[in-house]
């Protein structure tokens, strides 16, 4: 029963402008398959949004065209903490309910921007012997906050963070990254490794960075240094007594 008409009909159903309308990728909650299958299965019942204890999952607004009501995670605001609750409540299996271990989640992959990451900058300065920024800062936050430390993020040469295939894409590193205004580590959603294709996700990340630049409350640059130099502990003494009696004892 395959002829020209059925093929035409199939082609109409599978590749029309409407179909690609929503192909702006988002970071979906854990357990979501690829974007196309997810959009077909998701009935926008908002149960995963309701059940999320960290308010990580947000609800897509009216302005996102056909994506209205679908859940997404925006790790710069709030990352996914892999509590594995949302996939259990999904009524259609858009989020795979068989997934119980956070290790098998593949929401996306973290990508480190080596021009911003403090550790990479420090390493470059160390190699050339010239400090480009005038400061020497070491960070390692992403390595510390990663739920799968030494598996998903490893420290190369003890200072350079490198993301491996075991990255779940939860985005905790992105949330906690101290680099401003742009985060040095970003999550590229599953199946969208190219920066251009991240669409709305990428665009919003840019806007977010600019907003943060403008905000007056944030301490940055020399102000932050001044503020930090005020912290003085030269005269401070501990308010407990040292117990030195047992120091020589053998354990």
């Amino acid at each position: 029963m395959r002829n020209r008409f059925t093929e035409l009909f199939e082609g109409l159903l599978n590749s029309n402008p409407f179909k690609n309308y929503y192909k702006k990728n988002r970071l979906r909650p854990p357990g979501a398959a690829n974007e196309e299958t997810f959009m077909e299965l998701c009935i926008r019942c908002a149960r995963c949004i309701e059940v999320c204890p960290y308010d990580s999952i947000e609800r897509a607004d009216l302005f996102e065209k056909l994506q209205i009501g679908t859940p997404y995670v925006y790790p710069e605001n709030k990352a996914c903490y892999l509590c594995m609750r949302c996939m259990k409540v999904c009524p259609t299996g858009a989020l795979n309910p068989k997934l119980t271990d956070g290790k098998h989640v593949r929401m996306g992959i973290a990508v480190i921007n080596q021009n911003i990451c403090l550790n990479f900058l420090y390493y470059k300065d160390e190699m050339t012997g010239v400090s480009s920024t005038g400061t020497a800062q070491l960070c390692g936050t992403c390595y510390n906050v990663c739920p799968y430390t030494d598996e998903a993020i490893v420290m190369e040469k003890f200072i350079l963070p490198v993301v491996t295939d075991k990255c779940t894409g939860c985005g905790i590193c992105t949330e906690k990254c101290p680099a401003t205004p742009e985060k040095a580590i970003a999550i590229y959603p599953e199946g969208m490794p190219v920066d251009k294709n991240t669409g709305y996700f990428g665009r919003r990340s840019k806007v977010h960075g600019e907003e943060r630049k403008k905000s007056k409350d944030a301490l940055k640059g020399e102000k932050l240094l001044e503020e930090k130099q005020k912290i003085d502990s030269s005269d401070a003494k501990p308010d407990f007594e040292y117990n030195t009696e047992n120091y020589d004892q053998e354990w």
């Binding site: 998701c42 908002a46 149960r47 309701e50 009524p91 259609t92």
Partner: peptide, 23 residues
């Protein structure tokens, strides 16, 4: 938990039949 498109009471799951049919 849930909304009136789909709801969970204890372990019993309910969903709008039309929504499920569409997906």
């Amino acid at each position: 938990k849930g909304t009136f498109i789909s709801m969970d009471i204890g372990d019993a799951a309910m969903a709008d039949p039309l929504a499920v049919f569409q997906s």
